[in-house]
């Protein structure tokens, strides 16, 4: 067990997987010489050489498609998107090729690719660089969507993602790359599609993932002072969703708040709520509460940016509302 930053945990996962399997390689903008735009791939060029740690031109659709083609003949590419905002240029490759080749070929091909990079807002990056697009990716059958919240989860899930035979969309967070946590050494692999209870509680369930887990945990800590025991549940994988961990918690607490950075319309949180309503209807004592990013593009001004994003006070208010306090 070592105390590692999130970026170090991801680096460790990729390094270990590349050492284990010569068919794994890393490709993306600034991953090699520059040592990673966010230093996630630091030192990997020196370790594995130019053949396996590859700088690409800024051509997201091109290298995403190239990675998919390479995966069709047995390679296991890790394609780094400098951010998921730029990956929008490659969505045709991800939606129409990565997600569908197996299905439309009747199972003759598989596409074991990992596309990873930071998602969501950082600080003062304005509208085009501050988007949480997991709902768009999770909407497409054939893609697996992962959004870890801790360095240990990041390592364990990224190792699984590399080994998985499906295309895995791995969504990180720029704001969390420096965040430290205990990370098990060596072979630490977490299954995809299995959620985790980050904090136990009996009065209300707060569901969140990625960066929002930390907002939820901070809110839970404050709620404790008011005698409210919040349980914080992290699905970790968005699609396929671990319904069991969610439903078990809601059936216990009878109340639920979903916190997500993404826009509210047709969001992942709404999908989770729909499943709770249909499968745990009789356990609910209040309608599910939602805390989302505002339904606007991200503004630049610092004060407005804060207003746009979910915050601890907003989560506390939502919890009190579902508790009728």
């Amino acid at each position: 067990m070592a105390m590692l930053a999130f970026r170090e945990a991801l680096n460790q996962a990729m390094t270990e997987e590349m050492e284990r399997d010569p068919n794994v390689f890393l490709m993306g903008e600034e991953v090699a010489q520059y040592q990673g735009a966010y230093k996630v791939s630091q030192g990997m060029l020196q370790k594995f050489g130019e053949k396996r740690v590859i700088d690409t031109p800024i051509t997201e659709a091109g290298f995403a498609g190239l990675g998919i083609g390479a995966a069709m003949i047995g390679l296991r590419p890790i394609v780094e998107m400098m951010t998921w905002n730029f990956a929008i240029l490659a969505f045709d490759q991800l939606f129409n090729n990565a997600a569908k080749i197996r299905y439309m070929s009747g199972g003759q091909f598989k596409v074991p690719i990992v596309v990873r990079g930071p998602s969501g807002a950082a600080h003062a990056l304005a509208a085009q660089h501050s988007q949480s697009l997991e709902a768009m990716l999770a909407h497409v059958p054939g893609l697996i969507v992962v959004a870890p919240s801790t360095p240990a989860d990041g390592k364990g899930l990224l190792k699984s993602a590399v080994r998985d035979d499906n295309p895995v969309m791995f969504m990180e967070s720029e704001m969390m790359y420096g965040q430290k946590g205990e990370v098990p050494d060596g072979e630490y692999v977490l299954p995809l599609g299995v959620g985790d209870v980050k904090r136990g509680g009996k009065d209300v369930t707060i569901i969140a993932w990625s960066k929002m887990i930390h907002v939820a945990l901070a809110a839970a800590e404050q709620l404790k002072n008011e005698g409210i025991e919040a349980e914080v549940v992290d699905p970790r994988t968005i699609h396929p969703l671990d319904e069991t961990v969610i439903l078990d918690s809601v059936k216990k607490t009878n109340r639920c708040v979903i916190v997500e950075e993404a826009w509210p319309f047709a969001s992942v949180g709404k999908e989770i709520a729909s499943r709770i309503y249909s499968q745990a209807f009789d356990y609910l004592d209040a309608p599910i509460g939602h805390v989302n990013g505002a339904d606007v593009p991200m503004p630049y001004a610092h004060n407005l940016e804060k207003l746009m994003l979910p915050s601890v006070p907003r989560v506390i208010d939502a919890v009190k509302e579902v508790l009728y306090r």
């Binding site: 498609g65 998919i68 083609g69 390479a70 003949i73 047995g74 390679l75 045709d92 090729n97």
Partner: peptide, 24 residues
């Protein structure tokens, strides 16, 4: 390796298998 329905969308896949064979 298949027929593809999005005009031009499959072209990078071909670069991918070419990359893959060279890598291997």
């Amino acid at each position: 390796m298949g027929g593809y329905g999005i005009v031009g969308g499959h072209v990078p896949l071909a670069a991918g298998t070419a990359f893959g064979t060279k890598y291997l």
